[in-house]
């Protein structure tokens, strides 16, 4: 029944990704729908990093995307590899890769969030001092 648990997670993560990635594409690429131009600028990216809601969003996207993608890859590889031990080794390698990428990605998001909020605070402090 372990596989049932993993597969249910895979399907639920897939369904959630449809909405999360849809939103991600809307604010990065399909912005023309809302009359705005190219959204891929450094200042807009920093603006997003400064908002806690985007931090949660990035980490959710990262975790769900990695789980859905790497489970899919494990499924494909386990159908191509016929030796049971090799299948287990592949599953362990993919889990480790997933955890490392998740740790790296979420750490970077935290740092970027901290930098962006720090900068925003500095700007607002400067504004107060100048004002």
């Amino acid at each position: 029944m372990k596989e049932t648990k993993y597969w249910t997670g895979h399907i639920l993560a897939g369904a959630a990704l449809l909405f999360l990635l849809g939103f991600h594409f809307i604010y990065t690429h399909i912005a023309f729908l809302f009359g705005t131009e190219d959204n891929i600028t450094e200042s807009l990216s920093k603006g997003r990093d400064a908002q806690p809601v985007f931090l949660v969003f990035f980490i959710a996207l990262l975790g769900l995307g990695l789980y859905h993608g790497l489970y899919g890859l494990k499924n494909i590889l386990s159908e191509l590899i016929t030796c049971e031990n090799c299948r287990k080794i592949v599953a362990i390698i993919l889990t480790v890769v997933g955890i490392l990428l998740f740790a790296f990605g979420s750490y970077s998001s935290f740092v970027a969030h901290k930098n962006a909020t720090g900068m925003k605070n500095t700007v607002s402090r400067l504004e107060v001092n100048n004002g």
């Binding site: 029944m1 372990k2 596989e3 049932t4 597969w7 499924n75 386990s78 159908e79 299948r87």
Partner: peptide
């Protein structure tokens, strides 16, 4: 039966 059909060689393949 779920133990067998819900395993890694079962229905989810």
């Amino acid at each position: 039966r779920n133990e067998k059909t819900g395993s890694s060689h079962g229905a989810f393949k």
